[in-house]
Simulated assay, not measured.
Amino acid sequence: MNDPGETLLEFPCQFAIKAFGNADGDGDFSETVYALVKPHAPDLQRADLKTRDSSRGRYVSVTATIRAESKAQLDAIYTDLGASPSIIMSL
């Protein structure tokens, strides 16, 4: 059985975090993602975000590429994304 703290990633590394939300939600979804990720990745710039609408325009995805320093950092980001009512899903 694998150790739950084990990861296949070698840190530090570039890591893409993707978050999905409703396109018709309140405000700018990319700003929501930025505000949730930035405290954990201080080097994150708005230029590091890529936004894409779904084919029918109902959903939007934002990919934030960060320099990941540890598994704990990634866990904290995903915890904050998961706690936000604006985020439908994150990968």
Score class of each variant (00 low, 15 high):
Asn2Ser: 08
Gly5Asp: 11
Gly5Tyr: 09
Glu6Lys: 05
Glu6Val: 01
Glu6Tyr: 05
Thr7Ile: 01
Leu8Met: 09
Leu9Val: 14
Leu9Glu: 15
Glu10Phe: 04
Phe11Trp: 09
Cys13Gln: 12
Phe15His: 15
Ala16Phe: 12
Ile17Phe: 04
Lys18Gly: 01
Lys18Ile: 02
Lys18Met: 08
Lys18Pro: 01
Ala19Asn: 04
Phe20Glu: 07
Gly21Cys: 04
Gly21Ala: 00
Asn22Met: 03
Ala23Trp: 13
Asp24His: 15
Asp24Lys: 15
Gly27Met: 06
Gly27Asn: 07
Gly27His: 05
Gly27Ala: 04
Asp28Thr: 15
Ser30Glu: 11
Glu31Asn: 05
Thr32Asp: 07
Tyr34Pro: 01
Leu36Arg: 09
Leu36His: 13
Val37Met: 03
Val37Ser: 06
Val37Gly: 02
Val37Ile: 13
Lys38Thr: 13
Pro39Asp: 00
His40Phe: 12
His40Cys: 01
His40Gly: 00
His40Met: 02
His40Glu: 01
Ala41Asp: 01
Ala41Pro: 02
Pro42Ala: 13
Pro42Phe: 11
Pro42Asp: 11
Asp43Arg: 09
Leu44Lys: 01
Ala47Trp: 01
Leu49His: 15
Leu49Ile: 12
Leu49Ala: 12
Leu49Arg: 06
Lys50Asn: 10
Arg52Ile: 07
Arg52Trp: 03
Arg52His: 08
Arg52Gln: 13
Asp53Arg: 14
Asp53Tyr: 10
Ser54Ile: 14
Arg56Trp: 15
Gly57Lys: 13
Gly57Met: 09
Arg58Leu: 07
Val60Tyr: 02
Val60Trp: 01
Val62Phe: 09
Val62Asp: 11
Thr63Tyr: 03
Arg67Phe: 00
Glu69Tyr: 02
Glu69Arg: 09
Ser70Ile: 15
Ala72Tyr: 06
Leu74Val: 05
Asp75Trp: 04
Ala76Asp: 11
Ile77Phe: 14
Ile77Asp: 07
Tyr78Met: 07
Tyr78Pro: 00
Tyr78Leu: 10
Thr79Arg: 12
Thr79Asn: 04
Ala83Tyr: 13
Ala83Arg: 09
Ser84Leu: 12
Pro85Trp: 09
Pro85Leu: 09
Pro85Gly: 07
Ile87Glu: 03
Ile87Lys: 06
Met89Cys: 01
Met89Val: 08
Met89Gly: 00
Ser90Tyr: 13
Leu91Gly: 02
Leu91Ile: 04
